[in-house]
Write a protein that binds this DNA or RNA. Structure first.
Length: 452
RNA sequence: GGCGACGUGGCCAAGUGGCUAAGGCGAAGGUCUGCAAAACCUUUAUUCGCGGGUUCGAAUCCCGCCGUCGCCUCCA
């Protein structure tokens, strides 16, 4: 399988270094409920995870929660509570929606606040090696001690100086240095450290956790494109100087960002759609299909009509996946579809082409059913594709879900009405069933029904 | 200003040197039906932002232009 590696800016053949694939995916900062951009990112890494498993590889995935930072403290102050409460609340919300989105759980979900020991250890190590320095109760990473700095994001420190627009920090030796340990201000939560009371800087936790849970070298490090600089650039620097080994990660995989009418979704613009709200109107599968129908490195256009269109498309898929033909003759060779699907996925996780293949399998299933041929092997291969892509095939909720008895009763009533040619009554009963999520069809004098 | 991505049918979106430019949504017609729904069949880009160039051959490579977006210390 080939994957686009941000580090080398090309597609490269993926081969894990050891027996298991070590995968670290940057998690969320727990200052708020997860939004649709998080859904995009984690759906994509979920599919990567599933596909690696399908290829026969074992995967150990670690995903962090940044459960202490400025925004969380601000939120806690706003809500007159503490940062732990805010974080716990949003971590619960995270698991709640991600489970609904059928995103496989990572093996470990370390939190910044539960890895303080490892973080302090790593910072101490960096200081002893001369890559970091204490200043005013904080500790900074000295960017000039790493000659490779800027490799991932393809920029150099001198050029950055001309374009920088961040506030000056008197404690820093160099403008590009970044904070590893932040001295606590009055009334802020803090942890004891060799440099006094404070808390971890943002970047260090991922390095410390990756080292702690996966080791000094990993296979895949993932996250949104907005993390390339400075977050991942800084992670590389601190990890590689601390461990003395490189590369920290073989592959750097970055997903594109959700855009709304040509603009990135962002809290400052106020165009954030949270997942909870999206799930009120659309099925988990529809959101997943909307994401996977465009390539993971491209920006994803957020337009509710597009998710609604995906919901419609899913009707086809669900229906095809539940067909059984009862015919014995004419089994179809599925290898053509299988090869096509695999070829698409092997080329940098080409889910749009893989999904095109899924729809073609669906069409073939319908065609064969309609012409009296066996479909079982196609249904099996379709379900396998859907499993790899992480679809649940769960039916969307309808306002009034009828029991089987109710459905049979209504169908019988309609049957009677049709016999007496009271078609208006019959059509009313049909509408009633439709709005309750039951689709009926009159086939050769028999009325068949199915939930949709 | 620096770095990067992108511009393909009504909408979304694959394809990145050579068979008929995938797939989804939408639209039109047909089959089926009391009428439908679903499904199936047919139609819906002689053309890939614009202008040059390379080549036997370009949506795909090169140059220029126009336009959109992201990152450049909050971010999935």
């Amino acid at each position: 399988m080939k994957l686009y590696n941000t580090l080398t800016r090309k597609k490269e053949e993926f081969q894990p270094m050891g027996e298991i694939v070590k995968m670290y995916v940057c998690g969320v900062t727990t200052n708020d409920k997860p939004h649709i951009g998080h859904a995009m990112s984690y759906i994509i890494f979920d599919v990567l995870h599933r596909y690696l498993k399908f290829m026969g590889l074992s995967v150990k995935r670690v995903q962090n929660f940044t459960d202490i930072d400025d925004k969380i403290i601000d939120r806690a102050n706003m809500d007159s509570t503490d940062s732990t409460t805010v974080s716990e609340r949003n971590i619960s919300a995270y698991f709640n929606v991600m489970d609904k989105l059928n995103i496989m759980r990572a093996d470990v979900y370390p939190r910044a606040t539960t890895e303080i020991v490892e973080i302090i250890e790593m910072i101490t190590n960096l200081i002893s090696k001369g890559n970091a320095y204490e200043s005013g109760g904080s500790v900074y990473f000295s960017v000039s001690t790493d000659q490779n700095y800027g490799r991932l994001s393809n920029r150099n420190v001198d050029e950055m100086l001309n374009s920088t627009r961040f506030e000056k920090d008197e404690n820093k030796q160099n403008f590009a240095d970044f904070v590893l340990w932040k001295a606590a201000k009055p009334n802020e939560p803090f942890w004891e450290s060799p440099w006094g009371k404070g808390r971890p800087g943002w970047h260090i936790e991922c390095s410390a956790m990756a080292l702690h849970h996966l080791g000094s070298q990993i296979d895949i490090h993932g996250g949104g494109q907005d993390l390339v600089f400075p977050h991942h650039e800084n992670e590389i620097s601190q990890s590689e100087t601390a461990s003395g080994t490189e590369p920290f990660s073989q592959f750097w995989i970055h997903n594109g960002l959700v855009e709304m009418s040509g603009t990135k979704m962002s809290k400052s613009i106020g165009n954030v759609l949270n997942i909870e709200k999206a799930l009120e109107n659309y099925s988990s599968d529809a959101i997943r299909l909307w994401v996977l129908q465009s390539h993971y490195r491209s920006p994803l256009l957020l337009d509710e009509e597009l998710i609604a269109a995906a919901e419609t498309s899913l009707g086809r898929i669900r229906q095809a996946a539940n067909i059984s033909s009862n015919f014995l003759e004419g089994e179809k060779d599925t290898s053509v579809f299988f090869d096509r699907f695999k070829k698409a996925m092997d080329d940098d996780l080409g889910t749009p082409s893989a999904i095109a293949c899924v729809f073609d399998v669906c069409r073939e299933i319908f065609r064969r059913r309609d012409s009296g041929k066996k479909v079982e092997s196609l249904v099996i291969v379709l379900r396998e594709f859907l499993e790899i892509l992480g679809f649940t095939l769960e039916l969307p909720k309808h306002s009034s879900d009828l029991s089987e008895e109710d459905i049979e009763k209504l169908i019988n009533q309609r049957h009677a009405a049709r016999l007496e040619k009271r078609f208006e009554d019959a059509d009313k009963l049909r509408e009633e069933l439709t709005s309750a999520g039951v689709r009926i069809s009159d086939e050769g004098g028999i009325t068949k029904w199915t939930r949709f």
